[in-house]
């Protein structure tokens, strides 16, 4: 029998365990340059020196801008195309639905590795190799079947009666999607937005494989460059890692806070019918 106190302790333990890498990263990132890494784990004072060195070593500002450009384009595009696909799948006849769900699962099972070399050839053939388009391209198809399935799942939970009444009011497909489906699936949209952000922000392989000019590089590649500059300069490496992690970390925390607040508000409003499934955070 596991009682609530034991569960709370278990939760705390897990929280500690999962934040440990981040903790070590942070400790090293703020370590003074003068304190050799041979001298203990704890920094004897905190300093921003390593971040200063980071910006001196590489054009980090430029790389950050590129990263922002990619997510600014890819995330809204992903939400658009993934929700379209999810919506269409949820509204199509049963047999068609099944086919697309199965196809989506199959695509999920294709290892990314398998596509590197031939995508490289495809991108170069259609002329987007070497440009930021090569990083954004998957957003035109919803980025990942995973996102499409998330929307599909959310849209299918909406009672058909709601769709039907919209249709009786003369709303077309797009209007139904925009005015009926999307507002209800807001938590899913938030979740997909965060996941897509994380996906594109952290994408290391696409720039590695498809970009050739360093002025187009994004932050994940910058970290690789940093490591090539000096693989033993841990404070500098950790400062770079922390810099590249700050935005997604903030976003995740904000999303979870938002989800928590929404959950609380909803619990207050309709204590009986909590549709908790959509608040995944």
């Amino acid at each position: 029998m596991i009682g609530p106190p034991a569960r709370t302790a278990g939760r705390l333990l897990l929280v500690g365990l999962f934040t440990l890498p981040l903790l070590f990263m942070t400790l090293a990132a703020f370590r003074p340059t003068g304190q050799a890494i041979t001298a203990g784990l704890w920094p004897n004072s905190l300093t921003l020196d390593n971040f200063r060195r980071l910006f001196a070593a590489l054009p980090i500002g430029r790389f950050t801008l590129n990263s922002l450009l990619v997510v600014a384009a890819a995330v809204p595009l992903t939400i658009l195309t993934a929700s379209w696909a999810g919506f269409a799948m949820a509204r199509l006849p049963r047999s068609t639905q099944r086919r697309w769900v199965l196809l989506s699962f199959l695509v999920l099972m294709v290892p990314g590795v398998a596509l590197w070399s031939s995508r490289f050839l495809v991108y170069n053939r259609i002329g987007i190799g070497g440009t930021l388009w090569a990083l954004i391209a998957p957003a035109f198809m919803g980025s990942s079947p995973f996102f499409v399935l998330m929307f599909y799942r959310a849209f299918r939970r909406i009672p058909p009666a709601i769709y039907d009444s919209a249709r009786l009011d003369g709303a077309g497909v797009l209007a139904t999607w925009r005015q009926v489906a999307m507002p209800i699936a807001r938590p899913t949209t938030l979740a997909v937005a965060v996941l897509a952000f994380v996906l594109y922000w952290g994408d290391y392989l696409s720039p590695l494989l498809y970009l050739n000019e360093s002025r187009r590089y994004t932050l994940p590649v910058a970290l690789q460059l940093l490591q090539q500059l000096g693989r033993s300069d841990y404070p500098l490496l950790m400062a770079g890692s922390l810099w590249a992690s700050v935005v997604p970390l903030t976003l995740v925390v904000l999303a979870i806070v938002a989800a928590a607040l929404a959950e609380r508000i909803r619990a207050r409003h309709q204590r009986s019918a909590v549709d908790a499934t959509d608040t995944r955070y």
Partner: peptide, 16 residues
């Protein structure tokens, strides 16, 4: 959180 940070940042953290 560990899944949210870029894979390269995660890798470098483990290098340390």
């Amino acid at each position: 959180l560990p899944s949210a940070i870029p894979a390269t940042a995660f890798a470098l953290a483990w290098l340390w």
